[in-house]
């Protein structure tokens, strides 16, 4: 455990000394480049979203959001996230646990595969489910016989969302748990704790901020995913449109103000995510510092 903290603290120190050693002009140039990129590629589009959304005034803005189709889209997005995020939370903890605490055959392979959804284009992520569960797909005939609709219905959207958000929690936890090692758990077991007791009282408190961080990122992506969901959605108004798809439909129907109004909700989600992320990061750092302080006083 102490090695990871030392590393962490070391990297912070190094960052500070390196930047102060540069000549002043380099500092100015670098900062202005970073800031202008930030302004042009992030701030400007974000501002546009809100400006366009409010172009026809607050009345039109609110009208676009209380519209029935908009509600259906928001509801579907929330339902999808409510299913996908907990499932990926369970999977992420299980995967990180097994990778960090056990040695087994195929461990490297599992780590590689967890990253797969990051490297695959979202369109492919959607298409694989069409190929599996579509009427012409592998399980298509069986599903039709039993009258089960997966593609072009909510289950397909949830599946595609789970696929694309699969790595977030696991990716966040694996390095954390690997760094923490299993000494504390071993001590607990020696003292007679049951498996669940170890998990609730030792492991979970140790990883909670990392876990929350992963969940926040996972949720943001689950609500914002467009490509994979677009492929499996069927685009039925009021039924299989998530918020990002609904934005596209509104835009295609010349409802620009309404499109940007719904888009602004997604942008707000991004901002809230960012704020939460910063908060959690601060907590994580504080936690690490506390541990560092206690371990230093012990030695």
């Amino acid at each position: 455990m102490s090695t990871s903290i030392a590393l962490h603290a070391g990297s912070l120190e190094r960052a500070e000394t390196a930047s102060t050693r540069e000549p002043a002009w380099a500092k100015v140039v670098l900062i202005s480049v970073a800031l202008s990129f930030f302004a042009v590629f992030l701030l400007l589009p974000l501002g546009t979203v809100f400006a366009e959304a409010l172009r026809k005034g607050w009345g039109a803005y609110l009208e676009a959001l209380v519209n029935r189709d908009a509600w259906d889209a928001i509801r579907l997005t929330l339902i999808t996230a409510a299913i996908a995020v907990p499932l990926n939370l369970v999977f992420g903890v299980a995967a990180a646990w097994s990778i960090a605490k056990f040695e087994f055959r195929g461990k490297r392979l599992l780590i590689t595969f967890i990253d797969l959804p990051f490297s695959v284009s979202p369109v492919i992520s959607g298409l694989i489910y069409v190929l599996l569960f579509g009427a012409q797909g592998w399980f298509g005939p069986w599903l039709q016989e039993h009258d089960i609709q997966i593609i072009f219905a909510v289950p397909g959207i949830v599946l595609a969302t789970i696929f694309v958000t699969f790595p977030f929690v696991a990716r966040e936890l694996i390095p954390l748990m690997e760094a923490q090692g299993s000494e504390e758990e071993e001590a607990a077991v020696v003292l007679g704790a049951s498996g669940w007791q170890v998990f609730w009282h030792i492991t979970l408190p140790n990883i909670k901020w990392g876990l929350l961080y992963g969940v926040i990122l996972c949720n943001a992506r689950a609500m914002g995913e467009f490509g994979a969901v677009s492929v499996v959605s069927g685009h039925i108004r009021g039924q299989t449109n998530t918020m990002p798809l609904y934005v596209e439909i509104l835009y295609n129907e010349y409802n620009y103000a309404a499109a940007f109004a719904v888009a602004s909700l997604l942008a707000l989600l991004a901002i809230v995510t960012l704020a939460l992320k910063t908060l959690v990061e601060r907590q994580t750092r504080r936690q690490l510092q506390e541990i560092a302080a206690t371990s230093e006083s012990e030695t």
Partner: peptide, 20 residues
């Protein structure tokens, strides 16, 4: 009545793949 709109070929493809 619910509507789904898109490129005609793409929509036919979706119906073949099971869009109800």
């Amino acid at each position: 009545i619910r509507q789904s709109h898109g490129g005609s070929g793409k929509q036919a493809r979706a119906v073949i793949e099971g869009l109800q």
